[in-house]
Every structure is written in structure tokens, then in C-alpha cells.
Design a protein around this nucleic acid. Sequence first.
DNA 1: CGCGGGTTTGATGATGCTCAAGCCCGGTGG
DNA 2: CCACCGGGCTTGAGCATCATCAAACCCGCG
Lengths: 197, 197
Amino acid sequence: MDIGMIDQLVDNILGHVNLTTNEKKMLRTFWSEKTLIKGDYLLRNGDICRTDNYIVSGALKAFYINPKSGREEILYFAIDNWWASDVESFQKQKPSIYSIQALEKTHLLQITRPAFYRMLEQIPRLEGYFRIILESYLGSLQRSIIENKVCTVQQRYVEFMLRYPDIVKKVPHYLIASYLGCSAEFLSRVRKKLRTS
Amino acid sequence: MDIGMIDQLVDNILGHVNLTTNEKKMLRTFWSEKTLIKGDYLLRNGDICRTDNYIVSGALKAFYINPKSGREEILYFAIDNWWASDVESFQKQKPSIYSIQALEKTHLLQITRPAFYRMLEQIPRLEGYFRIILESYLGSLQRSIIENKVCTVQQRYVEFMLRYPDIVKKVPHYLIASYLGCSAEFLSRVRKKLRTS
DNA sequence: CGCGGGTTTGATGATGCTCAAGCCCGGTGG
DNA sequence: CCACCGGGCTTGAGCATCATCAAACCCGCG
């Protein structure tokens, strides 16, 4: 196993909780690497999410096909140092309600559910880490729900650029439009207005 | 302390993880009761969320004032046996981005952040319980985001009635409209259509 | 050079909001 | 017991917003 990749995860964890040298060593044993190329699926709607996935590098989109229009509705993007899994599907081992696909070559660290629980038993301090990750994600979801209700597309797009500049660089605008909840054409007009004002 | 109230929380926890008799006894010591009457605020936008709150009975709304229209935008409702706190504000002890207010007389169990951490230390098994709660809530948030993109107001309203019949009984429709992301007038027309079809 | 994915532009139209008025009904006080 | 609130719900008309469709455009790449 590439030491560099798991070190990146360890660094991320150390940003939130402390680990002993021994715990760090143990941690390494639970994870395996995976590489996706552009277009590969990490998870398909209806399948069970068997692994929790940490993104070392790359970009993914989580989406759902709108049965009316046949188009993708973007739920979220995920890039370096984010987690990308259908949490509820992973927890309850039930079918996922959305799909996750690579937007470019992506390196992952993966852990299965049994390994995940063994790891938490052996390194209880990680419970705190995963709680913090979940709480933070929950907070950002709630914030984005409020913003969707209160802000215009223009405000949300500006906010999105400020908050996730790395995503704007990697992802085509018609997908960002879907994430923001408008058509690609409308976002195009918004961007034009931003240019001239 | 009223034994009945905390027993309700213990029952809820036992639905997800096991506790020894001794752990149950310890658990009781960390919580305090609170009663809100209709209109009381549990949390105000901008204040720090000092307690995690378990609803024994009653109903709350979480909302944000839209600075443009001056109206409330409902983020969620919470009734018996749900948790109601700004998770991120509670975690990071930073200002809350929304308010929580009682829709009727409501009985709560509360725990402060220091007590929460002491409790987790003494009863590590609770880590698993709170992880499950967070994961479930995350899952339902993601599902509702997808439904908002994919489904019509009519479909979402029908789904809402099926999923949360107790909320529909307690909450005026103009607030449900806000939660569903439409005007009160529009929801009224949707309901009329449902009646005649 | 031609192809294809992504973006832009314009015209058209539906969806759902806004505002204003009336209605229904439970509660309160005379 | 009735009158009158007032909060919530309904209905109608007019209008703004934004989606849709179609076409052109741009540009990197085989």
C-alpha cells in the first residue's frame, strides 16, 4: 500500500482528534486503495453502498436521474479530502437512492462496513472524528437548504464560487446549474450578467 | 426528575444500542427537563446552541427569516422523540444560523455540551447511538433534497402526509407550504386538486 | 478539417408567485 | 346567545420568473 495516500487520511483525522503512533499504525491495516477513471461508477442507484470512501485526489458527482426529464440532478460534488458514500445505504446496507460517478481520474481509500466497525472498536477515539465529520456535513447541508430558499441563483452561484473554487475549475457549468437548481441556460445568463456588472 | 420522561429517551436509545442497567442509571444524571409553551424560543438565530434537545412531547419549528419577503422559511419540524438542535452550532459553539420555536406546549430533555462529552466518556456505547441518529438524519435530508428537485409539490405533499401524519395534524398548512418550498396559496390549490381527483 | 461536448443566445410559454378580497370557524366578551 | 374578532384557508386575476426548445457558436482534439 502506498504510504502517501493513507498519510493524507491520517493528516485529515489528526486535524480533528489525536492518535497515538500505535493507533496510526493500526489504522493503516483497515483500508484499501482504489482508482477510478473518468466515467467509472463508485456507486449505482439501487445498489448497496458496501464501502465508505475517502477521496485522496480527483472529483466525483453524486446524482439522481430525473424520471420526467431524463436528466441528472446533482446532489453534491466531492473532491480531495472529502468523503463520498451514501451514508444511509452504508449504515443500513440497503439500496442507495443515488449514484456516484467519477468526473476525472480519482484515487480513493476504501473501508468495508465490517472493517469499519472493527476499526472503531480498536480505535474508539475515531468515533469522535466521524461524529465531527457527520455533524459538519449536516451543518453544511442545512445551510445550503436555507440558502436555496432565501437566495437567488446569482447569490448562490457567487457563494458557490467562493466556497468551492476548486470544484468550479473541474466541473462543467451545466452540472453546477443542476446542483444550484436551475437550467444550464439560466446559469449562463447569470454568469453573463456577473461579467458585465 | 420525572422518571417517565427520561424513560422515553432510554427506550429510544435501546431501540438502537444496548445499555446495561448501570449505564441506564448513569444516563439519567446528565439530563434536565424543560417545558416550552407555544411561541417560546428554544434557540434564536445568532445565539449559540448550548444544549442538545430531545423532544419528549410537543412540536417545534426550525426556521429562518427571509430578508427579502420578511417571512419565515421552514427548515424542519420536530415532534415527539426527535432531536432539535442546531448540530453545528452545538458542536462548534458558534452562532446558530436559524431559530427554533415551539408550536405548542413542549416537554424537552436537555444536555449541555460539557455534560454531553462526559456522558460519552462514561457510556462509550452511546457514540454508536448518536452516530446512527446523525446518519439517519443525514439520509433523510439527502432524500428530501432529491425529492425537491425531482418531484412536484403535489407529490411531495402526498409523501409528506404519508411520512409525517402527526405533523400535518399539528401544523398549519401555510407553514407546511414553506417547508415544501411553495406559497400557501399554491399548496391550497394542490389540496383542492387532490380532493376532487 | 470535422466532430462533439459544452456554452451562449433568442423566442416562447408555463408554472407558480403576488396581491387583494372573501370565507370559514373557533374563541372571547358583551 | 349572539356579535365580532382574528388566524388560517380559499379563490381569482395579473404578472414575473425561469424552463424549454432550437439554433448557433466556440474550441480542443482526433
